[in-house]
Design a protein around this nucleic acid. Structure first.
Lengths: 292, 292
DNA sequence: CTTTTGTACTTTACCGATACAAGACAGATT
DNA sequence: AATCTGTCTTGTATCGGTAAAGTACAAAAG
Protein backbone atom coordinates (compact mmCIF):
# COMPACT_ATOMS: atom_id res chain seq x y z
CA UNK A 1 0.00 0.00 0.00
CA UNK A 2 1.30 3.38 -0.92
CA UNK A 3 -0.98 5.61 1.04
CA UNK A 4 -3.84 5.10 3.45
CA UNK A 5 -6.86 6.72 1.92
CA UNK A 6 -7.85 8.41 5.15
CA UNK A 7 -8.79 11.58 3.35
CA UNK A 8 -11.37 9.68 1.38
CA UNK A 9 -12.68 7.70 4.35
CA UNK A 10 -12.95 10.81 6.42
CA UNK A 11 -14.78 12.66 3.69
CA UNK A 12 -17.07 9.70 3.18
CA UNK A 13 -17.99 9.51 6.87
CA UNK A 14 -18.66 13.19 7.01
CA UNK A 15 -20.83 12.99 3.92
CA UNK A 16 -22.91 10.29 5.58
CA UNK A 17 -23.34 12.58 8.57
CA UNK A 18 -24.44 15.40 6.27
CA UNK A 19 -26.93 13.04 4.66
CA UNK A 20 -28.41 12.08 8.01
CA UNK A 21 -28.70 15.75 8.89
CA UNK A 22 -30.42 16.25 5.57
CA UNK A 23 -27.95 18.81 4.34
CA UNK A 24 -26.30 17.25 1.33
CA UNK A 25 -24.83 19.72 -1.11
CA UNK A 26 -26.04 19.61 -4.66
CA UNK A 27 -22.92 19.89 -6.75
CA UNK A 28 -19.50 18.27 -6.55
CA UNK A 29 -17.58 21.53 -6.16
CA UNK A 30 -19.95 22.66 -3.40
CA UNK A 31 -19.56 19.43 -1.49
CA UNK A 32 -15.81 19.65 -1.98
CA UNK A 33 -15.82 23.07 -0.39
CA UNK A 34 -17.81 22.04 2.65
CA UNK A 35 -15.65 18.96 3.18
CA UNK A 36 -12.42 20.71 2.41
CA UNK A 37 -11.32 18.19 -0.21
CA UNK A 38 -10.83 18.13 -3.95
CA UNK A 39 -13.40 17.10 -6.51
CA UNK A 40 -11.48 13.89 -7.12
CA UNK A 41 -12.20 12.83 -3.57
CA UNK A 42 -15.80 14.00 -3.74
CA UNK A 43 -16.31 11.83 -6.79
CA UNK A 44 -14.81 8.85 -5.00
CA UNK A 45 -17.26 9.45 -2.17
CA UNK A 46 -20.23 9.73 -4.52
CA UNK A 47 -19.12 6.65 -6.32
CA UNK A 48 -19.06 4.64 -3.10
CA UNK A 49 -22.43 6.03 -2.08
CA UNK A 50 -23.80 4.68 -5.33
CA UNK A 51 -22.12 1.28 -4.84
CA UNK A 52 -23.63 0.96 -1.39
CA UNK A 53 -27.03 1.99 -2.71
CA UNK A 54 -27.34 5.12 -0.60
CA UNK A 55 -27.34 7.82 -3.24
CA UNK A 56 -27.33 7.42 -6.98
CA UNK A 57 -26.19 10.17 -9.30
CA UNK A 58 -26.84 10.49 -12.97
CA UNK A 59 -25.48 13.62 -14.51
CA UNK A 60 -26.19 16.36 -12.05
CA UNK A 61 -29.29 14.73 -10.65
CA UNK A 62 -28.91 12.86 -7.37
CA UNK A 63 -31.48 10.76 -5.54
CA UNK A 64 -31.20 9.59 -1.96
CA UNK A 65 -32.29 5.94 -1.78
CA UNK A 66 -31.94 5.34 1.93
CA UNK A 67 -30.63 6.87 5.13
CA UNK A 68 -27.11 5.81 6.11
CA UNK A 69 -26.84 3.10 8.76
CA UNK A 70 -24.20 2.74 11.43
CA UNK A 71 -22.31 0.08 9.55
CA UNK A 72 -22.02 2.23 6.47
CA UNK A 73 -19.39 4.30 8.26
CA UNK A 74 -15.71 3.46 8.19
CA UNK A 75 -14.25 2.63 11.60
CA UNK A 76 -12.78 5.69 13.27
CA UNK A 77 -9.32 4.18 13.44
CA UNK A 78 -9.23 4.00 9.66
CA UNK A 79 -10.01 7.67 9.23
CA UNK A 80 -7.11 8.81 11.37
CA UNK A 81 -4.28 10.29 9.31
CA UNK A 82 -0.99 8.49 9.64
CA UNK A 83 0.71 11.50 11.14
CA UNK A 84 -1.79 11.51 14.00
CA UNK A 85 -1.16 7.86 14.70
CA UNK A 86 2.56 8.44 14.84
CA UNK A 87 2.15 11.47 17.04
CA UNK A 88 -0.08 9.69 19.52
CA UNK A 89 2.18 6.68 19.80
CA UNK A 90 5.21 8.84 20.25
CA UNK A 91 3.62 11.10 22.87
CA UNK A 92 2.40 8.11 24.79
CA UNK A 93 5.95 6.90 24.99
CA UNK A 94 7.30 10.23 26.06
CA UNK A 95 4.73 10.85 28.72
CA UNK A 96 4.18 7.39 30.05
CA UNK A 97 7.42 5.85 30.90
CA UNK A 98 11.10 6.19 30.43
CA UNK A 99 11.06 9.77 29.26
CA UNK A 100 14.24 10.76 31.04
CA UNK A 101 16.23 13.50 29.40
CA UNK A 102 19.00 11.99 27.32
CA UNK A 103 17.05 8.95 26.13
CA UNK A 104 17.74 8.10 22.51
CA UNK A 105 14.95 7.94 19.98
CA UNK A 106 15.37 5.37 17.26
CA UNK A 107 13.53 6.04 13.99
CA UNK A 108 13.63 2.49 12.77
CA UNK A 109 12.36 1.03 16.02
CA UNK A 110 9.50 3.53 16.22
CA UNK A 111 8.59 2.82 12.62
CA UNK A 112 8.51 -0.92 13.27
CA UNK A 113 6.45 -0.49 16.41
CA UNK A 114 3.82 1.56 14.60
CA UNK A 115 4.06 -0.37 11.36
CA UNK A 116 4.95 2.49 9.05
CA UNK A 117 7.89 3.46 6.87
CA UNK A 118 10.84 5.20 8.48
CA UNK A 119 10.39 8.25 6.31
CA UNK A 120 7.01 8.95 7.90
CA UNK A 121 8.50 8.74 11.36
CA UNK A 122 11.38 10.92 10.27
CA UNK A 123 9.09 13.60 8.95
CA UNK A 124 7.08 13.52 12.11
CA UNK A 125 10.17 13.92 14.26
CA UNK A 126 11.37 16.86 12.18
CA UNK A 127 8.01 18.55 12.57
CA UNK A 128 7.91 17.72 16.23
CA UNK A 129 11.36 19.07 16.91
CA UNK A 130 10.13 22.63 16.95
CA UNK A 131 8.43 21.92 20.26
CA UNK A 132 11.85 21.83 21.87
CA UNK A 133 11.51 18.34 23.30
CA UNK A 134 13.84 16.50 20.97
CA UNK A 135 17.05 17.31 19.20
CA UNK A 136 18.87 15.65 16.34
CA UNK A 137 22.44 14.42 16.36
CA UNK A 138 23.42 14.60 12.70
CA UNK A 139 23.86 11.22 11.02
CA UNK A 140 22.66 9.66 14.20
CA UNK A 141 19.76 9.43 16.63
CA UNK A 142 17.43 11.95 18.20
CA UNK A 143 17.85 12.83 21.84
CA UNK A 144 14.96 13.41 24.19
CA UNK A 145 15.19 16.51 26.29
CA UNK A 146 12.65 15.57 28.90
CA UNK A 147 9.20 16.74 29.75
CA UNK A 148 10.43 18.23 32.96
CA UNK A 149 10.41 21.28 35.13
CA UNK A 150 12.95 23.13 32.99
CA UNK A 151 10.77 22.65 29.94
CA UNK A 152 7.70 23.90 31.78
CA UNK A 153 9.54 26.94 33.10
CA UNK A 154 10.92 27.93 29.73
CA UNK A 155 7.57 27.41 28.09
CA UNK A 156 5.75 29.47 30.71
CA UNK A 157 8.28 32.28 30.49
CA UNK A 158 7.80 32.79 26.78
CA UNK A 159 4.09 32.27 27.02
CA UNK A 160 3.71 35.00 29.58
CA UNK A 161 5.79 37.40 27.54
CA UNK A 162 3.77 36.74 24.39
CA UNK A 163 0.36 36.68 25.91
CA UNK A 164 0.86 39.85 27.89
CA UNK A 165 1.77 41.64 24.72
CA UNK A 166 -1.13 40.13 22.82
CA UNK A 167 -3.60 41.02 25.54
CA UNK A 168 -2.51 44.63 25.55
CA UNK A 169 -2.79 44.73 21.77
CA UNK A 170 -6.25 43.22 22.02
CA UNK A 171 -7.43 45.78 24.55
CA UNK A 172 -6.22 48.54 22.26
CA UNK A 173 -8.16 47.22 19.26
CA UNK A 174 -10.72 49.64 17.79
CA UNK A 175 -14.22 48.73 18.82
CA UNK A 176 -15.29 47.82 15.31
CA UNK A 177 -12.66 45.14 14.95
CA UNK A 178 -14.23 41.72 14.31
CA UNK A 179 -12.19 40.14 17.08
CA UNK A 180 -14.47 41.81 19.62
CA UNK A 181 -17.46 40.00 18.19
CA UNK A 182 -15.64 36.71 18.48
CA UNK A 183 -14.76 37.55 22.05
CA UNK A 184 -18.45 38.09 22.83
CA UNK A 185 -19.30 34.67 21.45
CA UNK A 186 -16.56 33.03 23.46
CA UNK A 187 -17.75 34.74 26.60
CA UNK A 188 -21.23 33.33 26.07
CA UNK A 189 -19.73 29.87 25.64
CA UNK A 190 -17.87 30.28 28.90
CA UNK A 191 -21.05 31.16 30.72
CA UNK A 192 -22.83 28.25 29.12
CA UNK A 193 -20.12 25.86 30.21
CA UNK A 194 -20.24 27.23 33.73
CA UNK A 195 -23.91 26.33 33.98
CA UNK A 196 -23.35 22.75 32.93
CA UNK A 197 -19.97 22.28 34.52
CA UNK A 198 -21.26 19.30 36.44
CA UNK A 199 -21.84 17.27 33.31
CA UNK A 200 -19.24 17.97 30.71
CA UNK A 201 -16.41 20.07 32.01
CA UNK A 202 -14.18 18.04 29.72
CA UNK A 203 -15.08 20.41 26.90
CA UNK A 204 -13.16 23.16 28.59
CA UNK A 205 -9.71 22.44 27.21
CA UNK A 206 -10.95 23.00 23.69
CA UNK A 207 -12.61 26.27 24.69
CA UNK A 208 -9.48 27.32 26.53
CA UNK A 209 -7.43 26.87 23.39
CA UNK A 210 -9.81 28.90 21.26
CA UNK A 211 -9.85 31.66 23.84
CA UNK A 212 -6.09 32.01 24.01
CA UNK A 213 -5.68 31.74 20.27
CA UNK A 214 -8.13 34.58 19.88
CA UNK A 215 -6.09 36.76 22.21
CA UNK A 216 -2.91 35.91 20.34
CA UNK A 217 -4.52 36.78 17.04
CA UNK A 218 -4.48 40.40 18.15
CA UNK A 219 -0.69 40.36 18.14
CA UNK A 220 -0.69 40.02 14.35
CA UNK A 221 2.64 38.32 14.68
CA UNK A 222 3.14 34.89 13.14
CA UNK A 223 5.84 33.90 15.61
CA UNK A 224 3.64 34.69 18.58
CA UNK A 225 0.64 33.00 17.03
CA UNK A 226 2.60 29.90 16.03
CA UNK A 227 4.11 29.58 19.46
CA UNK A 228 0.71 28.74 20.80
CA UNK A 229 1.04 25.40 18.99
CA UNK A 230 3.62 24.37 21.55
CA UNK A 231 1.33 25.22 24.41
CA UNK A 232 -1.63 23.54 22.79
CA UNK A 233 0.41 20.38 22.31
CA UNK A 234 1.48 20.34 25.93
CA UNK A 235 -2.01 20.89 27.23
CA UNK A 236 -3.52 18.44 24.83
CA UNK A 237 -1.33 15.57 25.87
CA UNK A 238 -0.12 16.29 29.29
CA UNK A 239 -3.52 16.94 30.73
CA UNK A 240 -4.76 13.57 29.66
CA UNK A 241 -2.50 12.24 32.37
CA UNK A 242 -3.40 14.70 35.05
CA UNK A 243 -7.05 14.48 35.96
CA UNK A 244 -6.57 15.60 39.55
CA UNK A 245 -8.98 18.31 40.60
CA UNK A 246 -9.85 18.77 36.99
CA UNK A 247 -13.25 20.18 37.71
CA UNK A 248 -12.07 22.71 40.28
CA UNK A 249 -9.21 23.79 38.08
CA UNK A 250 -11.45 24.28 35.09
CA UNK A 251 -14.07 26.13 37.05
CA UNK A 252 -11.45 28.49 38.39
CA UNK A 253 -10.01 28.96 34.94
CA UNK A 254 -13.41 29.90 33.56
CA UNK A 255 -13.81 32.57 36.20
CA UNK A 256 -10.35 33.87 35.43
CA UNK A 257 -11.19 33.99 31.75
CA UNK A 258 -14.34 35.97 32.45
CA UNK A 259 -12.42 38.47 34.53
CA UNK A 260 -9.80 38.59 31.77
CA UNK A 261 -12.48 39.32 29.16
CA UNK A 262 -13.97 42.08 31.29
CA UNK A 263 -10.51 43.59 31.70
CA UNK A 264 -9.95 43.54 27.94
CA UNK A 265 -13.21 45.35 27.40
CA UNK A 266 -12.38 47.99 29.97
CA UNK A 267 -9.34 49.01 27.96
CA UNK A 268 -7.60 49.75 31.24
CA UNK A 269 -3.99 48.73 30.79
CA UNK A 270 -3.41 47.96 34.44
CA UNK A 271 -6.50 45.81 34.72
CA UNK A 272 -5.56 43.86 31.61
CA UNK A 273 -2.08 43.30 32.98
CA UNK A 274 -3.42 42.06 36.27
CA UNK A 275 -6.05 39.74 34.85
CA UNK A 276 -3.63 38.29 32.34
CA UNK A 277 -0.92 37.81 34.93
CA UNK A 278 -3.30 36.18 37.38
CA UNK A 279 -4.56 33.69 34.86
CA UNK A 280 -1.17 32.81 33.45
CA UNK A 281 0.20 32.35 36.92
CA UNK A 282 -2.35 29.74 37.78
CA UNK A 283 -1.79 28.09 34.40
CA UNK A 284 1.89 27.94 35.18
CA UNK A 285 1.22 26.44 38.58
CA UNK A 286 -0.99 23.73 37.11
CA UNK A 287 1.63 22.92 34.53
CA UNK A 288 4.46 22.76 37.03
CA UNK A 289 2.43 20.60 39.36
CA UNK A 290 2.13 17.97 36.67
CA UNK A 291 5.73 17.77 35.49
CA UNK A 292 8.13 15.08 36.50
CA UNK B 1 23.29 6.17 -5.44
CA UNK B 2 21.77 5.96 -2.04
CA UNK B 3 23.67 8.59 -0.18
CA UNK B 4 26.33 11.11 -1.02
CA UNK B 5 29.34 10.38 1.14
CA UNK B 6 29.86 13.99 2.02
CA UNK B 7 30.60 13.10 5.61
CA UNK B 8 33.53 11.02 4.49
CA UNK B 9 34.81 13.54 1.97
CA UNK B 10 34.58 16.31 4.47
CA UNK B 11 36.41 14.29 7.08
CA UNK B 12 39.04 13.32 4.54
CA UNK B 13 39.68 16.92 3.52
CA UNK B 14 39.94 18.00 7.12
CA UNK B 15 42.34 15.19 7.86
CA UNK B 16 44.56 16.35 5.03
CA UNK B 17 44.50 19.82 6.55
CA UNK B 18 45.48 18.40 9.93
CA UNK B 19 48.34 16.52 8.27
CA UNK B 20 49.65 19.68 6.64
CA UNK B 21 49.48 21.43 9.97
CA UNK B 22 51.35 18.52 11.47
CA UNK B 23 48.69 17.72 14.00
CA UNK B 24 47.50 14.23 13.11
CA UNK B 25 45.98 12.31 15.99
CA UNK B 26 47.44 8.96 16.86
CA UNK B 27 44.47 6.68 17.38
CA UNK B 28 41.25 6.15 15.46
CA UNK B 29 38.96 7.13 18.32
CA UNK B 30 40.98 10.28 18.96
CA UNK B 31 40.82 11.34 15.32
CA UNK B 32 37.11 10.56 15.33
CA UNK B 33 36.61 12.92 18.23
CA UNK B 34 38.48 15.80 16.66
CA UNK B 35 36.65 15.36 13.36
CA UNK B 36 33.30 14.71 14.98
CA UNK B 37 32.68 11.48 13.10
CA UNK B 38 32.51 7.80 13.89
CA UNK B 39 35.35 5.33 13.74
CA UNK B 40 33.84 3.81 10.61
CA UNK B 41 34.38 7.07 8.79
CA UNK B 42 37.84 7.52 10.28
CA UNK B 43 38.82 4.11 8.98
CA UNK B 44 37.51 4.99 5.53
CA UNK B 45 39.66 8.12 5.64
CA UNK B 46 42.76 6.20 6.73
CA UNK B 47 42.13 3.64 4.09
CA UNK B 48 42.03 6.28 1.36
CA UNK B 49 45.16 7.93 2.76
CA UNK B 50 46.91 4.60 2.34
CA UNK B 51 45.57 4.09 -1.20
CA UNK B 52 46.84 7.51 -2.22
CA UNK B 53 50.20 6.84 -0.64
CA UNK B 54 50.00 9.62 1.91
CA UNK B 55 49.90 7.70 5.17
CA UNK B 56 50.21 3.98 5.72
CA UNK B 57 48.98 2.26 8.82
CA UNK B 58 49.90 -1.17 10.10
CA UNK B 59 48.36 -2.08 13.39
CA UNK B 60 48.56 1.01 15.50
CA UNK B 61 51.69 2.34 13.82
CA UNK B 62 51.25 5.04 11.19
CA UNK B 63 53.87 6.59 8.94
CA UNK B 64 53.46 9.73 6.89
CA UNK B 65 54.89 9.16 3.43
CA UNK B 66 54.36 12.59 1.92
CA UNK B 67 52.63 15.91 2.50
CA UNK B 68 49.20 16.25 0.93
CA UNK B 69 49.03 18.16 -2.35
CA UNK B 70 46.23 20.39 -3.58
CA UNK B 71 44.79 17.75 -5.85
CA UNK B 72 44.49 15.26 -3.02
CA UNK B 73 41.53 17.21 -1.73
CA UNK B 74 37.97 16.58 -2.83
CA UNK B 75 36.35 19.50 -4.59
CA UNK B 76 34.43 21.69 -2.17
CA UNK B 77 31.15 21.14 -3.96
CA UNK B 78 31.38 17.44 -3.21
CA UNK B 79 31.76 17.98 0.50
CA UNK B 80 28.62 20.04 0.83
CA UNK B 81 25.80 18.12 2.54
CA UNK B 82 22.71 17.66 0.47
CA UNK B 83 20.57 19.65 2.86
CA UNK B 84 22.81 22.67 2.33
CA UNK B 85 22.51 22.39 -1.40
CA UNK B 86 18.76 22.26 -1.18
CA UNK B 87 18.64 25.17 1.22
CA UNK B 88 20.82 27.34 -0.95
CA UNK B 89 18.89 26.64 -4.12
CA UNK B 90 15.62 27.29 -2.38
CA UNK B 91 16.73 30.52 -0.73
CA UNK B 92 18.09 31.76 -4.01
CA UNK B 93 14.68 31.31 -5.52
CA UNK B 94 12.90 32.99 -2.66
CA UNK B 95 15.18 35.99 -2.54
CA UNK B 96 16.00 36.49 -6.16
CA UNK B 97 12.89 36.57 -8.14
CA UNK B 98 9.27 35.74 -8.01
CA UNK B 99 9.00 35.54 -4.25
CA UNK B 100 5.60 37.15 -4.03
CA UNK B 101 3.46 36.04 -1.13
CA UNK B 102 1.05 33.36 -2.27
CA UNK B 103 3.39 31.68 -4.75
CA UNK B 104 3.12 27.91 -4.68
CA UNK B 105 6.11 25.74 -3.95
CA UNK B 106 6.22 22.44 -5.77
CA UNK B 107 8.24 19.65 -4.15
CA UNK B 108 8.62 17.62 -7.30
CA UNK B 109 9.74 20.54 -9.40
CA UNK B 110 12.28 21.65 -6.81
CA UNK B 111 13.57 18.09 -6.53
CA UNK B 112 14.00 17.82 -10.29
CA UNK B 113 15.72 21.18 -10.50
CA UNK B 114 18.27 20.19 -7.87
CA UNK B 115 18.50 16.58 -8.92
CA UNK B 116 17.50 14.95 -5.64
CA UNK B 117 14.67 12.79 -4.38
CA UNK B 118 11.43 14.44 -3.35
CA UNK B 119 11.75 13.16 0.18
CA UNK B 120 14.88 15.22 0.71
CA UNK B 121 13.12 18.34 -0.48
CA UNK B 122 10.14 17.53 1.68
CA UNK B 123 12.22 17.14 4.77
CA UNK B 124 13.96 20.38 4.04
CA UNK B 125 10.66 22.21 3.63
CA UNK B 126 9.34 20.82 6.89
CA UNK B 127 12.45 21.95 8.71
CA UNK B 128 12.34 25.28 6.97
CA UNK B 129 8.71 25.90 7.81
CA UNK B 130 9.54 26.96 11.34
CA UNK B 131 11.04 30.13 9.95
CA UNK B 132 7.54 31.31 9.18
CA UNK B 133 8.14 31.87 5.47
CA UNK B 134 6.18 28.94 4.09
CA UNK B 135 3.05 27.12 5.08
CA UNK B 136 1.67 23.74 4.10
CA UNK B 137 -1.76 23.09 2.64
CA UNK B 138 -2.46 19.50 3.65
CA UNK B 139 -2.41 17.01 0.78
CA UNK B 140 -1.30 19.82 -1.40
CA UNK B 141 1.40 22.38 -2.02
CA UNK B 142 3.34 24.76 0.17
CA UNK B 143 2.54 28.44 0.02
CA UNK B 144 5.14 31.14 0.21
CA UNK B 145 4.42 33.91 2.65
CA UNK B 146 6.83 36.45 1.27
CA UNK B 147 10.05 37.93 2.48
CA UNK B 148 8.38 41.27 2.98
CA UNK B 149 7.91 44.10 5.37
CA UNK B 150 5.36 42.22 7.50
CA UNK B 151 7.83 39.41 7.99
CA UNK B 152 10.59 41.80 8.98
CA UNK B 153 8.34 43.62 11.42
CA UNK B 154 7.14 40.48 13.13
CA UNK B 155 10.65 39.11 13.31
CA UNK B 156 12.01 42.33 14.78
CA UNK B 157 9.24 42.55 17.34
CA UNK B 158 9.96 39.14 18.81
CA UNK B 159 13.66 39.63 18.55
CA UNK B 160 13.53 42.80 20.55
CA UNK B 161 11.40 41.20 23.23
CA UNK B 162 13.74 38.25 23.55
CA UNK B 163 16.99 40.05 23.36
CA UNK B 164 15.99 42.69 25.86
CA UNK B 165 15.17 39.98 28.33
CA UNK B 166 18.36 38.07 27.61
CA UNK B 167 20.48 41.17 27.94
CA UNK B 168 19.02 41.95 31.35
CA UNK B 169 19.60 38.37 32.41
CA UNK B 170 23.16 38.60 31.18
CA UNK B 171 23.86 41.78 33.10
CA UNK B 172 22.56 40.12 36.25
CA UNK B 173 24.89 37.14 35.89
CA UNK B 174 27.30 36.58 38.80
CA UNK B 175 30.79 37.72 37.94
CA UNK B 176 32.23 34.23 38.04
CA UNK B 177 29.91 32.95 35.34
CA UNK B 178 31.90 31.66 32.34
CA UNK B 179 29.82 33.72 29.95
CA UNK B 180 31.68 36.83 31.11
CA UNK B 181 34.93 35.31 29.96
CA UNK B 182 33.48 34.59 26.56
CA UNK B 183 32.21 38.16 26.40
CA UNK B 184 35.75 39.43 27.02
CA UNK B 185 37.07 37.35 24.16
CA UNK B 186 34.36 38.60 21.84
CA UNK B 187 35.10 42.17 22.78
CA UNK B 188 38.73 41.65 21.83
CA UNK B 189 37.65 40.23 18.49
CA UNK B 190 35.49 43.27 17.91
CA UNK B 191 38.39 45.59 18.53
CA UNK B 192 40.59 43.51 16.29
CA UNK B 193 38.06 43.70 13.48
CA UNK B 194 37.76 47.44 13.91
CA UNK B 195 41.48 47.84 13.27
CA UNK B 196 41.40 45.89 10.05
CA UNK B 197 37.95 46.90 8.91
CA UNK B 198 39.35 48.15 5.64
CA UNK B 199 40.44 44.72 4.51
CA UNK B 200 37.98 42.09 5.65
CA UNK B 201 34.86 43.57 7.11
CA UNK B 202 33.05 40.61 5.60
CA UNK B 203 33.94 38.63 8.70
CA UNK B 204 31.59 40.73 10.75
CA UNK B 205 28.37 38.84 10.12
CA UNK B 206 29.83 35.73 11.66
CA UNK B 207 31.06 37.68 14.68
CA UNK B 208 27.70 39.38 14.99
CA UNK B 209 25.97 36.03 15.19
CA UNK B 210 28.29 34.73 17.86
CA UNK B 211 27.81 37.90 19.87
CA UNK B 212 24.04 37.76 19.88
CA UNK B 213 23.97 34.04 20.53
CA UNK B 214 26.14 34.63 23.56
CA UNK B 215 23.69 37.19 24.91
CA UNK B 216 20.78 34.84 24.32
CA UNK B 217 22.56 32.03 26.12
CA UNK B 218 22.04 33.99 29.34
CA UNK B 219 18.29 33.56 28.99
CA UNK B 220 18.65 29.84 29.63
CA UNK B 221 15.49 29.38 27.61
CA UNK B 222 15.50 26.99 24.65
CA UNK B 223 12.72 28.87 22.87
CA UNK B 224 14.55 32.14 23.06
CA UNK B 225 17.84 30.55 22.06
CA UNK B 226 16.32 28.62 19.16
CA UNK B 227 14.56 31.69 17.87
CA UNK B 228 17.91 33.12 16.99
CA UNK B 229 18.09 30.53 14.21
CA UNK B 230 15.42 32.48 12.36
CA UNK B 231 17.36 35.69 12.66
CA UNK B 232 20.61 34.02 11.67
CA UNK B 233 18.95 32.58 8.59
CA UNK B 234 17.61 35.94 7.56
CA UNK B 235 20.90 37.69 8.04
CA UNK B 236 22.88 34.94 6.41
CA UNK B 237 20.91 34.99 3.19
CA UNK B 238 19.37 38.34 2.93
CA UNK B 239 22.54 40.22 3.45
CA UNK B 240 24.23 38.49 0.59
CA UNK B 241 21.90 40.51 -1.58
CA UNK B 242 22.27 43.81 0.17
CA UNK B 243 25.82 45.04 0.03
CA UNK B 244 24.94 48.71 0.14
CA UNK B 245 26.95 50.66 2.68
CA UNK B 246 28.07 47.38 4.12
CA UNK B 247 31.23 48.78 5.55
CA UNK B 248 29.58 51.75 7.23
CA UNK B 249 26.82 49.60 8.63
CA UNK B 250 29.25 47.10 10.05
CA UNK B 251 31.48 49.70 11.52
CA UNK B 252 28.54 51.31 13.23
CA UNK B 253 27.34 47.93 14.47
CA UNK B 254 30.72 47.19 16.00
CA UNK B 255 30.63 50.44 17.93
CA UNK B 256 27.12 49.64 19.11
CA UNK B 257 28.26 46.22 20.23
CA UNK B 258 31.11 47.72 22.20
CA UNK B 259 28.76 50.13 23.94
CA UNK B 260 26.39 47.23 24.55
CA UNK B 261 29.18 45.18 26.12
CA UNK B 262 30.18 48.06 28.36
CA UNK B 263 26.57 48.46 29.45
CA UNK B 264 26.32 44.77 30.30
CA UNK B 265 29.42 45.02 32.44
CA UNK B 266 28.10 48.07 34.26
CA UNK B 267 25.14 46.07 35.50
CA UNK B 268 23.08 49.23 35.24
CA UNK B 269 19.63 48.18 34.08
CA UNK B 270 18.82 51.43 32.37
CA UNK B 271 22.11 51.50 30.50
CA UNK B 272 21.64 47.93 29.31
CA UNK B 273 18.14 48.74 28.14
CA UNK B 274 19.34 51.75 26.22
CA UNK B 275 22.30 50.07 24.57
CA UNK B 276 20.25 47.05 23.60
CA UNK B 277 17.39 49.14 22.26
CA UNK B 278 19.73 51.36 20.26
CA UNK B 279 21.44 48.46 18.61
CA UNK B 280 18.28 46.52 17.84
CA UNK B 281 16.69 49.60 16.41
CA UNK B 282 19.42 50.06 13.89
CA UNK B 283 19.32 46.34 13.12
CA UNK B 284 15.62 46.67 12.46
CA UNK B 285 16.16 49.66 10.22
CA UNK B 286 18.75 47.81 8.16
CA UNK B 287 16.47 44.85 7.80
CA UNK B 288 13.47 46.92 6.80
CA UNK B 289 15.51 48.86 4.30
CA UNK B 290 16.33 45.66 2.47
CA UNK B 291 12.89 44.09 2.25
CA UNK B 292 10.74 44.12 -0.83
C1' DC C 1 43.21 -2.92 33.22
C1' DT C 2 42.74 0.67 29.90
C1' DT C 3 42.80 1.87 25.20
C1' DT C 4 43.03 0.37 20.32
C1' DT C 5 41.97 -2.40 16.44
C1' DG C 6 39.29 -5.85 13.65
C1' DT C 7 34.84 -7.23 12.65
C1' DA C 8 29.96 -7.74 12.57
C1' DC C 9 25.78 -5.51 13.12
C1' DT C 10 22.28 -1.60 13.27
C1' DT C 11 20.56 2.69 11.84
C1' DT C 12 20.33 6.72 9.04
C1' DA C 13 20.15 9.19 4.54
C1' DC C 14 18.67 8.96 0.24
C1' DC C 15 16.63 6.96 -3.94
C1' DG C 16 12.89 5.21 -7.01
C1' DA C 17 8.23 3.54 -7.52
C1' DT C 18 3.10 3.76 -6.92
C1' DA C 19 -1.68 4.56 -5.04
C1' DC C 20 -4.14 8.45 -3.47
C1' DA C 21 -5.46 13.23 -3.90
C1' DA C 22 -5.39 17.67 -6.14
C1' DG C 23 -5.81 20.56 -10.15
C1' DA C 24 -6.65 21.82 -15.25
C1' DC C 25 -9.55 21.97 -19.23
C1' DA C 26 -13.05 21.19 -22.57
C1' DG C 27 -17.58 20.12 -23.50
C1' DA C 28 -22.25 19.73 -21.50
C1' DT C 29 -26.15 21.84 -18.52
C1' DT C 30 -28.92 25.12 -16.62
C1' DA D 1 -22.50 33.41 -18.92
C1' DA D 2 -21.81 30.97 -15.22
C1' DT D 3 -21.40 26.55 -13.11
C1' DC D 4 -21.18 21.65 -13.49
C1' DT D 5 -19.42 17.01 -15.00
C1' DG D 6 -16.15 13.86 -17.47
C1' DT D 7 -11.54 13.06 -18.40
C1' DC D 8 -6.65 13.70 -18.06
C1' DT D 9 -2.41 15.30 -15.97
C1' DT D 10 0.34 16.53 -12.17
C1' DG D 11 1.81 16.21 -7.45
C1' DT D 12 1.83 14.36 -2.70
C1' DA D 13 2.08 10.66 0.83
C1' DT D 14 3.97 6.57 1.69
C1' DC D 15 6.44 2.37 0.95
C1' DG D 16 10.53 -0.66 0.38
C1' DG D 17 15.33 -1.00 -0.73
C1' DT D 18 20.50 0.08 -0.43
C1' DA D 19 24.99 2.56 0.35
C1' DA D 20 26.95 5.34 3.93
C1' DA D 21 27.66 6.22 8.64
C1' DG D 22 27.21 4.95 13.40
C1' DT D 23 27.67 1.54 17.26
C1' DA D 24 28.80 -2.75 19.97
C1' DC D 25 32.00 -6.21 21.32
C1' DA D 26 35.70 -9.32 21.61
C1' DA D 27 40.47 -10.03 20.89
C1' DA D 28 44.96 -7.71 20.78
C1' DA D 29 48.33 -4.35 22.27
C1' DG D 30 50.36 -1.40 25.49
Amino acid sequence: MARQNTTFKNAYNRTLALLSAGGLETSEPALGRTLGVSRTTVRAVLSRLAERGIVVSEGRRRSILRAPADDDYFAEAETDPLSNVIERTFMKRILEADAKAGTHVNELELAREIGVATSSVREFLIRFSRFGLIEKRPNSHWVLKGFNRAFADELAEVREMFEMRSALAFAALPKDNPLWGRLDLLEAEHRGLLDTIGQHFAGFSELDERFHRLIHAASRNRFIIDFYDVIAMVFHYHYQWNKQNERERNEQAIHEHLAYIAALRSGDVRRVRDACATHLESARATLLASTV
